[in-house]
């Protein structure tokens, strides 16, 4: 057994806290960091900018598992913009996407609430938004933390 395992006993590891699948299926809570993010994103179209290291796409899956809402993540340098949607959309149209692209953001990804593989099917709108950014790929995560990649047309 390694020192790390002694220092972090089983009850402090693998608790499922903050894990999308555990939040969804066993009602485990968000972790503290995710909970703070959610508190800053109280409803539809709320947005926050946070340091890059403080959020990743798995966190967005966890937020989607907790709320049933879509979230979109954009990255510029060392900062990330998170935008909360509702159960079937995020308030990003072509104009807004082009504005974000002009500001230097990349579209890191977004979530689709649900647990099936098919829920990660890209929409016409997803492809159209990706076309607005100077990048080839983006990802769609479901509420379990699974993801698919889609590419620029």
């Amino acid at each position: 057994m390694s020192i790390n395992n002694i220092d972090f006993p089983i009850e402090q590891r693998n608790t499922g806290k903050g894990q999308p699948n555990a939040i969804l299926h066993t009602g485990r809570p968000l972790n503290n960091r995710q909970q703070k993010l959610l508190e800053q994103l109280p409803g539809y179209d709320s947005q926050i900018i946070v340091p890059k290291k403080s959020v990743n796409m798995k966190d967005l899956s966890a937020l989607t598992a907790e709320t049933g809402d879509e979230f979109a993540l954009f990255t510029k340098g060392r900062e990330r913009l998170i935008i909360r949607g509702n159960s079937n959309s995020v308030n990003i149209d072509m104009t807004k996407a082009k504005e974000l692209a002009e500001q230097g953001y990349k579209w890191s990804g977004h979530t689709h609430p649900g647990i099936t593989a098919l829920i990660m099917q890209a929409s016409d709108g997803d492809y159209a938004i990706l076309d607005c950014f100077d990048q080839q790929y983006s990802v769609i995560h479901n509420s379990k933390g699974e993801y698919r990649t889609f590419e620029r047309r």
């Binding site: 959309s89 308030n91 990660m120 890209a122 990649t149 889609f150």
Partner: peptide
């Protein structure tokens, strides 16, 4: 357009008009 996972690819059909609403319309392609 293509959308893929670790060991599969879906080939999709898109139209420019349907995508104009961006993420406001997430009807799957």
């Amino acid at each position: 357009p293509k959308c893929w996972g670790k060991n599969d690819i879906w080939i999709q059909h898109t139209t420019g008009e349907k995508g104009q609403k961006g993420l406001l319309d997430e009807t799957p392609a």
